[in-house]
Simulated scan of single mutants.
Amino acid sequence: MSNPIRLLEGIRVVSLEQYIGAPYCTGLLADAGAEVIKVEAPGAGDPRRSYDPLRRDAEGTLSGGFASYNRGKRSVELDLKTDEGRAGLDRLLETADVLVSNLRPGSLPRFGLGRDEVRERFPRLVVCELSGFGQTGPYAAWPAFDSVIQAMSGLSSMLGESPESPPGLAPMATMDLLGGVYAALGILAALVGRQRTGVGVHIDASMYDIGAAFLERPLTLHEFTGDVPTRGRDRFSPVGSFRARDGWVALVIPTDEMWRRCCEAIGRPELATDPRLDTVLKRAERMPDLVTDVLEEWAADLTKEEAARILRDGGQPAGVVQSIAEVRADPHLAARGLFQPVDDPRAVNPDGTTLSLPRLPLLFDGTAPVPGPIPALGADTDDLLGEERS
């Protein structure tokens, strides 16, 4: 692809970050061209530097759990428990546009960076604090990881085979990543607003708020109907997967017209007027014991790709259920350059190929942001703070 557009070039972000939420936020900003300075504790740095999977060779050690969220950044070691460390942070903030933190609520005031102090000393600075439950409210001091927010936001109550099955957890850090995306959105909005006002703002980003807002559909249904959505099938339209010869196909049939097209595509046009299936709600109720059976009988001798293609050709949205390996090898994603090689000598696979990770999943004027190298702990300390430290 051609050279990427670096839309945030010239924006300096200082981040007191660890684990996933804030690093994912600033990783997105770095992909878009911002200079991100990651402030880490001396010695070990971000705990994810030691997370599996680890790759060790002559070039050093690289953590996959760290690489995913920290490419394209600079690393500075500062002990913020000391006067010298806090002075170094202040020096970085003198030229910064954004300060991001996912440390515990109350941490910034301890570093002399409460809201009033920031407005007096760094009036143009945009500050974003991302935490489990926000800086205010009854739960503000509670520690939280992704699984806690999945549970409390209601997401876990929606994941599972039936209301009787145990609540589920999404296997990826869903709420951490959502928190990072919303924090990045808030930062961009604040930077645009600063162009008009000349003043930065403080963003209080709560993963709990974000998680609850993410469940807007079941919350809206509850608000309108009084019902409490729970685990199991969707009661408002047929949605789910059916088995083909070599795998699974997923589809949703939210309208009568889509149902008619589906029936035509599978050679069962009479089902479009079957009184057992003549409304969306009836089809949703019958999805497990009738709709799925009909589709699986039709697809028994078809591959999942063939079944999905026939449905798509008939105007019915459908897609195959892909494994992670199939996603990584998908030709469509390859054509769009989603997976970009990591610019790091440690990032070499056993077969000699370069490790590739997903970039910021947006194209700007048809060009893809290219992630930068993964910083070694403290690699940029002397460059950024050399004069003060000398």
Rank of each mutant, 00 (worst) to 15 (best):
V249N: 09
P238Y: 00
D234T: 10
A284N: 04
V291A: 06
D256R: 02
V252H: 10
E296W: 02
D256M: 01
I253D: 03
A265P: 00
I253N: 06
P254S: 04
P238W: 02
L271Y: 06
V294I: 14
R260I: 03
L295N: 04
P275E: 11
D274T: 08
E296C: 11
R245P: 03
S241P: 06
A265T: 09
E285F: 12
P269N: 10
D278L: 05
D234V: 12
M258L: 15
I310K: 09
A308W: 12
L277H: 04
D293V: 15
R312G: 03
W259R: 03
D289I: 12
E296A: 08
V249T: 07
F236Y: 14
E306M: 10
T279I: 01
R233H: 14
G315Y: 06
G314Q: 05
I266K: 01
P317I: 02
E270V: 07
Q316W: 13
I266T: 01
R235T: 14
V280E: 11
L277W: 05
V294N: 05
V294K: 11
W248Q: 14
E297R: 14
T292C: 03
R261Y: 04
L277V: 04
M258S: 12
L311M: 13
D274Y: 11
W248L: 15
L295K: 02
A308R: 12
G267M: 02
D246A: 05
P288E: 14
L271T: 05
R286I: 01
D256H: 07
R309V: 09
P254C: 04
P254W: 00
A307D: 06
T303L: 01
V291E: 10
